[in-house]
Amino acid sequence: MDKSTNVLIVDDYKTMLRIIRNLLKQLEFDNVEEATDGQEALAKLRAGNFGLVISDWNMQPMTGLDLLKEVRADARLKHMPFIMITAESKTENVVAAKQAGVSNYIVKPFNAETLREKIEKVLAHA
């Protein structure tokens, strides 16, 4: 797993961003940036050089699913590993995310081992 990967974490709860950032730090990912909704994330992704997105779903005005669709529709970003990390656990949500091209899906509340396992998996296929 390439620990130098630039990671963008997206969540409208500041404390959640802090928790994910700290868990990533424990996994030795130090190049981490944050965004608080899909629009801000998309702007950062288009301007930056990221290798992984970890995004919440339930945000306004642009949700995580809408961000995912924008990423997959962008010629430069379309192969970006994208992990959805969300409390939305209904089958229809998971199916919609998969159909939109999500790389993996973590349901909240989650543990550090699940986060490590999913990151390792998506980066291996990147």
Binding site: W57, Q60, D66, K69, A96, V107
Partner: peptide
């Protein structure tokens, strides 16, 4: 959007996957 329509928040424990 589809993302907004499907954003319903956490389910109660018996129903949550």
């Amino acid at each position: 959007t589809e993302g907004q329509r499907l954003a319903n928040g956490p389910q109660l424990p018996p129903a949550a996957a």
